[in-house]
Design a protein around this nucleic acid. Structure first.
Length: 281
DNA sequence: CCTTAATCCTGGAAGC
DNA sequence: TGCTTCCAGGATTAAG
């Protein structure tokens, strides 16, 4: 479920609970959730003995960097959660908790992921993680600027929404915020990326920043199971303009919202605010 | 180049 | 009240 705003919400809520803490013990419930190829030292590989220095995010990817060395990368996939339980407290639910980090103050960090599309990777350093894994990602969507977005969309015959969802073009946007951004920018998701005018690309870049910023301020969206590090739900799901609202009136013009499939994903649009010059819908 | 479908999983909702 | 089917925030792979 998590897109950039949800991952950023986890990062912000996790940082004060984790930074400066030493990892005393790592308990792995399901080995296949640890997808790391770095096994030089299995204990160090999942951060044991390290002190958390900072939490970093790029797109939907999250990692904690450790002193004196090491980095742990977490991808939440569709149903992943990272939350901390205070010393002595019972965690709300322990089913599907695949990794537990026990910290030096007795608190515990849990990685819970029922669908197991997410995972945990270990790297010898943050630099190694960036070079080996984050290198392939496009610019972070939270501060995407028009010239950079234009470079990502130019010369592509793909549908603009397919490009927005491609993490190699733009890192952080998923199905929810792609629909929200395209609606507010008044661009049909099937428009060929290269057909967008300079003004449209500029509008889209500004809209993506606005939509993501707004969602971060609301602490993300909880459709079903998203929670932050303190197990709190997000609030942006009550403010969706089009996502998941097929048949409801367009918030701008009142016409009934439609859904179609783009890049294999359900997409909701307003047919009059987002006209498709080339197609019928 | 581009697109679709299948795949990895669980679980909630909807349909009968 | 079941039981079945479909669908979901992601990402990769293979096939057309």
């Amino acid at each position: 479920m998590p897109e950039l705003p949800e991952v950023e919400t986890v990062r912000r809520s996790l940082a004060p609970l984790l930074v400066g803490r030493r990892i005393d013990r790592v308990v792995v419930g399901r080995a296949d959730v640890v997808r790391s190829s770095f096994r030089r030292d299995r204990r160090a590989a999942l951060g044991r003995g390290g002190v958390v220095e900072e939490l970093v995010r790029h797109g939907k990817q999250l990692a904690f960097a450790l002193r004196p060395a090491g980095a742990v990368h977490v991808h939440l996939g569709m149903s992943g959660q990272l939350f901390v339980t205070p010393p002595g407290a019972e965690p709300g639910r322990t089913d599907h908790v695949h990794v537990r980090w026990v910290l030096d103050d007795g608190s515990r960090l849990h990685f819970r992921d029922p669908r197991r599309f997410g995972g945990v990777w270990a790297y010898p350093s943050l630099e190694a993680l960036r070079a080996e894994r984050w290198e392939r990602l496009g610019p972070d969507a939270l501060d995407i600027r028009a010239p950079v977005l234009r470079a990502g969309l130019a010369r592509s015959g793909r549908a603009v929404k397919a490009c927005l969802l491609d993490q190699g073009v733009l890192a952080g946007v998923g199905n929810i915020y792609a629909d929200e951004s395209l609606f507010l920018a008044r661009i049909h998701p099937l428009r060929p990326a290269a057909s967008l005018s300079g003004a449209e690309v500029a509008r889209l870049a500004a809209t993506i920043r606005r939509v993501l910023c707004e969602a971060v301020a609301a602490r993300g969206s909880t459709l079903r199971d998203f929670i932050d590090a303190e197990q709190r739900r997000g609030g942006q799901q009550d403010r969706f303009r089009v996502y998941g609202r097929r048949g409801a009136p367009c918030p701008a013009c009142g016409r009934s919202l439609l859904s179609l499939t783009v890049a294999g994903r359900t997409s909701t649009i307003c047919p009059s605010c987002q006209p498709n010059p080339g197609g019928s819908c």
